[in-house]
Simulated scan of single mutants.
Amino acid sequence: MKISQLFKEKDVTLSFEVFPPKTDAGFEAVEKAASEIAALSPDFMSVTYGAGGGTSKNTAKIAGDLQDRFSVPVLAHLTCVSSTKDLVKSVVNEYKERGIENIMALRGDIPKEGRISFDYDHATELIYDIKSIDDSFCIGGACYPEGHVECARQSEDIQHLKEKVDAGCDFLTTQMFFDNSTLYQFLYRIREKGIEVPVVPGIMPITNAKQVARSVALSGSTIPQKMKIMVDRFADEPDKMKEAGIIYACDQIIDLISNGVSHIHVYSMNKPDIAEGIMNNLRSIIR
């Protein structure tokens, strides 16, 4: 099923993201984790794509298998980074052959050598290309409630976002954030600029103290005082930290749904226990 159609049919959705292994040796463990998360019956699952397409064959395989075995819609990622037009065409065709109907089109992180790709500079160009290869796909894109780290002003970032949507992006998924007011302000700004596609909040459960520094380094996300206090209190007690992190994420999700933001995506980090904890806490709300 196309995710755009799913959003029309269901008032509330909850989905999870998994990522393929960096090497083939880790495939079995990731496949097991992904299967356990799929068995929880999320509304859809996304499968990420390694830089330069290094895990692209595993992205297609995991996504296709999840869809076939669990009848769960899948969102397969595709990035500009180090991609050529020929590679993109090949991947899009493989997704099509596997019955995958949804693609998350991303620029990806710039590699150390400093160039994104010989054929692409921005996700907007990738979206145009996917549409030209096969316009039957539902296409998702990324957005940044606190502004993209490479943009000096949020207004500039929102203009790029408008270009992405105009290119054919059907919905947007946010980078992680930990203060819902950040999202509400962002939604007001983008709606004001005519961006009307569904926006799916990306929620990252912080279940160990090391994730905080890592999250800030990767995304530039602001850590609210409430979360800092939680981490300080439970950092040295792993079980309590995990439970507190799940509850914090659930509190975010409940607040979002209460305020009419009802399609939620969870960055589950290949951890079925985290996904299960969130699903169990929210089951009566999302069903």
Rank of each mutant, 00 (worst) to 15 (best):
Q5N: 14
F7P: 05
K8M: 14
E9H: 12
V12P: 03
E17F: 01
E17G: 01
E17P: 02
E28I: 14
A29W: 00
I37H: 12
A38N: 08
L40D: 07
L40H: 03
S46R: 05
V47Q: 09
G50W: 08
G52E: 10
G53V: 04
S56H: 02
S56W: 01
N58T: 02
I62A: 04
G64R: 11
H77D: 06
T79R: 08
T79M: 07
T79N: 08
V92F: 09
E94G: 02
Y95V: 13
E101S: 14
M104N: 12
A105Y: 05
A105G: 05
L106A: 03
L106T: 05
D109A: 10
P111W: 12
P111Q: 08
P111H: 09
E113M: 05
D119W: 06
Y120M: 02
Y128C: 04
D129Y: 04
D135Y: 05
F137I: 08
C138W: 04
Y144A: 03
E150G: 01
A152Y: 09
V165K: 04
F171D: 06
D179T: 12
Q185F: 08
F186C: 02
L187R: 03
L187F: 06
Y188P: 00
I190Y: 04
E192W: 12
E192M: 13
P198K: 10
T207I: 14
Q211S: 01
A213M: 11
A217H: 09
K226S: 15
K226C: 13
M227I: 09
I229Q: 13
D232H: 10
R233P: 00
F234T: 14
D236E: 15
D239G: 15
A244Q: 02
G245K: 03
C250P: 08
D251N: 09
I253F: 08
I253N: 03
L256S: 05
S258I: 05
G260D: 03
G260Q: 07
S262C: 14
I264W: 07
N270I: 11
D273G: 00
D273S: 13
N281L: 14
R287S: 15
